[in-house]
Design a protein around this nucleic acid. Structure first.
Length: 506
RNA sequence: GCCCCCAUAGUCUAGCGGCCCAGGACGCCACCCUUUCAAGGUGGAGAUCGCGGGUUCGAAUCCCGCUGGGGGCACCA
């Protein structure tokens, strides 16, 4: 009876707890969400908890609506979390180790900063920004590392000096008193043992003058208070990890396990960012990517199942994922491969399911409502022809629009009838004559009626079919002709053939 | 400038001392299928495993150096 809570606590302490800690400074991009994915996979594989924490301690960089984009990106990819802000109301929490929004934890950070000051691990710094800039510039000009010169580290001794400065209204920051010598080492689950000389570090800021903490303090305090067992984050954090380890030591806390994930690079091999184009997660949704395809692709950036498996579903990922197979080297985001993979997923989707995905895309792009029955018949014609949902617009939009199609005479005539509109008109008339009263109006009958016509007109089948194709679809690339005409229906097909004829003039 | 990380084809990767004069995938090329476009099938080009030293009977695999690339060095995260 007394054992139960102890055992429960022990297993809770030993269980895996990981977090995704984005800051609401914009829409999450794919590199960022890959970190979320690996955290999620690790948590799910280990049967641990996946926690989301909003790191909104930079008022200047805050962007309106960023939280919504974060939650939407996670939801779109199906990365559910166990603890974090309530997406429907950020002022509320899911889970009992919150708040999960750092701006609501300010007194916690203040308390911990004070604690460090009292213990002699931190101090107040009154240097104005201009002085810091000056110092930094000087050092850079002298080709020296741009570090804070520790001007306030040991301020004039008279007791009360600090208070005096404060009462004079001087703003101050709190800095960490970094050891001047020695080294700080830690183990990275992906890279092994890493060591830094303390004298290469400087007295970094813990609390800003606006009362907000800086990342280093906030994340360490939160990771500790939230019971984070493993910190899986991007490689760009590797060089600030010694600072974090030093903080854990100053607090006399056991640090979590660290694993620095390889970064995702743009085509120019620099860290992926907005300037590489459309890298925002939700932008991929706009462009017609399937979340399961993006997830599959991202899961394979820096991790692999074996030497040949490319298509991996969510369950297999969860079952197989492990840090042992995470690579240390960065990966360039290969857009072509993602697009190919998206095509694979589209083809694997059941027709009904694919119709569900395509319908809203068509409706928003075409600006009309899409008839479900018609769409259901169109899907089998295009599913092997599109790699992106948005391609359904070009490939099959003509099924859903009324009125004249938008194409020019040059397209209609193509190479085969170039300069000879008379012959094209003649062929179209022949087709109309042959097909107007055709019974039944279906694929086989249409082909049976039109194919022989080519020979009768002394035309290549390709030439005749091509002409009809443009007339009926408005494009030279479309689904198979007779199926298309069958689905489009007699009236609309004939109408479009007549329209093409009219364009060729008398 | 200093610190740290990384290094197999254009790209993503397999490889953890002999099975590899290196396997898979995207992309590319050719052919087949074919009414266009795709999808599919077959075949192909493409890597002196960044370079140089070691260790070892034997190295893509271990060690060292170099070079190259990336990241960090804010009152940003």
């Amino acid at each position: 009876m007394t054992l139960t809570p102890i055992l429960a606590r022990m297993s809770a302490d030993m269980s895996v707890r990981v977090r995704y800690a984005p800051s609401p400074t914009g829409e999450p991009h794919v590199g960022n969400i890959r970190t979320a994915l690996f955290n999620w996979l690790f948590a799910r594989h280990e049967g641990g908890a996946f926690i989301v924490r909003l790191e909104d301690t930079d008022q200047a960089r805050y962007e309106e609506g960023a939280e919504r984009a974060i939650f939407e990106s996670l939801a779109w990819l199906g990365l559910d979390y166990d603890e974090g802000p309530d997406p429907s109301d950020i002022s509320r929490d899911i889970g009992d180790r919150g708040p999960y929004v750092q701006s609501r934890r300010r007194d916690t950070y203040r308390r911990h900063a004070d604690q460090l000051i009292e213990a002699g691990h931190a101090y107040r710094c009154y240097c104005p920004a201009e002085r810091l800039d000056q110092v930094r510039k000087d050092l850079q000009r002298r080709k020296l590392p741009p570090k804070y010169d520790r001007h306030c580290r040991d301020l004039p001794d008279p007791p009360g000096a600090e208070q005096r400065l404060e009462s004079e209204g001087l703003p101050c920051v709190v800095r960490f008193r970094t050891p001047l010598s020695g080294q700080t080492a830690f183990h990275d689950l992906i890279r092994g043992d890493i060591m830094f000389q303390n004298d290469t570090l400087d007295d970094f800021v813990l609390m800003k003058s606006d009362g907000f903490p800086v990342y280093h303090l906030a994340s360490v305090v939160d990771d500790r208070l939230m019971g984070i067992s493993h910190v899986l984050r991007g490689d760009e954090w590797l060089s600030s990890t010694p600072r974090h380890v030093l903080l854990y030591q100053a607090f006399d806390w056991e640090p979590p396990a660290f694993a620095h994930l390889p970064m995702i690079l743009g085509p120019d091999r620099s860290k992926l960012s907005k300037r590489h184009g459309d890298t925002a997660v939700l932008e991929f949704r706009e462009r017609g990517f399937l979340p399961e395809a993006l997830l599959n692709f991202l899961g394979l950036l820096g991790w692999s199942l074996d030497d040949r498996t490319e298509i991996i579903d969510r369950e297999t990922f969860v079952r197989s994922f492990g840090l042992e197979r995470v690579l240390a080297n960065p990966a360039v985001f290969n857009f072509d491969k993602l697009t190919w993979m998206n095509g694979v997923y589209i083809r694997e989707l059941a027709e009904e399911a694919l119709a569900d995905r395509i319908s809203p895309v068509l409706e928003s792009r075409l600006g009309t409502s899409v008839d479900r029955g018609l769409l259901r018949r169109v899907v089998p014609l295009i599913r092997e022809r599109i790699k992106l949902l948005t391609e359904a617009v070009e490939m099959a939009g003509f099924f859903f629009v009324e009125g004249e199609l938008d194409y020019g005479e040059e397209t209609l005539l193509g190479k085969k009838f170039a300069g000879d509109p008379g012959a094209a008109a003649h062929a179209l008339e022949a087709v109309l004559g042959r097909v107007s009263a055709l019974q039944p109006w279906e694929h086989g009958a249409l082909e049976g009626a039109i194919r022989p016509l080519a020979e009768e007109l002394d035309l290549k089948t390709g030439a005749l079919f091509g002409l009809i194709r443009v007339a009926v679809t408005g494009s030279t690339a479309a689904p198979p002709l007779f199926e298309t005409m069958a689905v489009l229906g007699r009236e609309r097909s004939l109408e479009r053939l007549r329209s093409a004829l009219r364009r060729l003039g008398p």
